[in-house]
Design a protein around this nucleic acid. Structure first.
Lengths: 245, 245
DNA sequence: CGTTTACTTGACACGACTCAAGGCGGGTGG
DNA sequence: CCACCCGCCTTGAGTCGTGTCAAGTAAACG
């Protein structure tokens, strides 16, 4: 009688210990793995479109942006999806956001019917899903505070801190995930995307970044590379709260 | 051997067929009811405060506003909680929003430990919770689009439509819940709260409302009462998407 | 009644947007 | 290898929408 073994593809999975799957037993993982498939997307490629049939799963590597649009073309980015993030809605047929790949991105997607069945059989899975959607909700609300109340400088500073924190999380091989002065971060998106994320124009984002540089709070080493010179001041410039802990 | 009967207090519950509980069997409902308590709050009273121990449950009657704040006092309302809405986070100890009662409000609150246990035993409950949090997430993202991209007029128009739709839902005794020209809606909150919800100032909200009146799109019959004269134009003024269906 | 709170309206200021030009960098083809 | 091109980004000048400040009105309350 064989011991339940973790599926090979899961053992080798980059997000084995961070994704939804981290919380499952080998047996459960085997069942889930059986209804998953991997797909890769290149930069700029669309993963799902608002109003079209939804697709859901984990991000294994790369980066996705999730956005909502107005009929006249204005767009708001509502989320950046990093490795180990879950995307899409298993409980609804139509996507309510459009998702694009920014970099080469590998996804672990689930088959809807089977996933639905498994999630009723595996309480842990359902609970993990709930935890993730509540975390997304918290992020969305933090961002509502930003979009509704913060000034341009505060938005840009908050954005930088958020990226820095996400990247510190990802690079936690040597699990000291706290930010410290001098850290260098790589901005994974264009100015236009930053603008669509923080609700400003490209030009304003650019100007606020140079203002932060002039104030000796950050350093711009190439347009995508930022050195955090004074994190305390950066937090102050951000208006503090979002993920202050 | 007695048939499992719906608890009396649930039978009489105003949101019996709309809340979380609507999806449960009488047996499950009995178990859930056993770990619930009712509490009422008067206008202006605080229900929970950001950072303090969270409390969660259903709104039975009245109205709550849920908001996030910046250290300097700026506030963003992230949600209005109508009867049958679920509030709070069963999966986390500390609240991440502050909740106030706007009107006399009755809540059906659950005891954390017991609820957690029940939700692992009753998949339906867990699933209902997931559905609700995903719906909240959708709303939050619609609102991010509003806060990040829409003009003042669009925000105010969108707000009116949202209130109208919520109220049509509530008054669906004669389940024709579609909006129609001439409908009168009651704005349940002050101008200051509208402003904090749509990310504007009181004055701008006031001005955009009178502009909508001058454009013959709405009529203001007292500051809290609005007659929708031309819903098509109101939708156009709102930039359409949020709950366009 | 008088007082308070909520709302509206006006005049003005300022922050972010718009429009436009110019620089930087990476890729392609001559 | 250099010249060119094309996105991406920065910077500037001017406009416009929304915020700010300040009255003034209307409605709610004791």
């Amino acid at each position: 009688m064989p011991l339940p073994a973790t599926p090979l593809s899961c053992q080798q999975c980059a997000i084995r210990h961070k994704g939804l799957c981290a919380e499952l037993t080998p047996l459960e993982l085997t069942a889930l793995n059986a209804v998953s498939r991997r797909r890769t997307f290149g930069p700029g490629q669309m993963v799902v479109m608002e109003g079209e049939p939804d697709v859901f799963g984990n991000v294994l590597s790369g980066l996705l942006v999730e956005k909502k649009s107005l009929p006249d073309g204005r767009e708001q980015i509502v989320s950046l999806l990093f490795p180990s993030d879950f995307h899409g809605n298993p409980r609804t047929a139509k996507a309510d956001t459009t998702i694009h790949a920014i970099a080469n991105t590998e996804l672990c997607l689930f088959e809807r019917q089977s996933f639905e069945r498994l999630s009723t059989e595996i309480p842990t899975l359902q609970r993990a899903l709930l935890d993730r959607s509540l975390a997304s909700l918290q992020h969305a609300r933090d961002w509502m505070l930003l979009l509704g109340q913060k000034s341009a400088s505060e938005r840009v500073a908050t954005f930088l801190l958020r990226i820095a924190e996400r990247q510190a999380e990802l690079d936690c091989h040597h699990h000291s995930n706290a930010l410290s002065d001098g850290d260098v971060i790589e901005i994974p998106i264009t100015r236009a995307q930053i603008a669509a994320y923080v609700g400003l124009t490209i030009e304003t984002v650019s100007r606020r970044l140079t203002a932060l540089r002039d104030a000796q709070i950050i350093d711009l080493e190439g347009s995508r590379t930022v050195r955090l010179i004074n994190i305390m001041q950066l937090r102050a410039a951000a208006g503090t709260p979002p993920t202050l802990n």
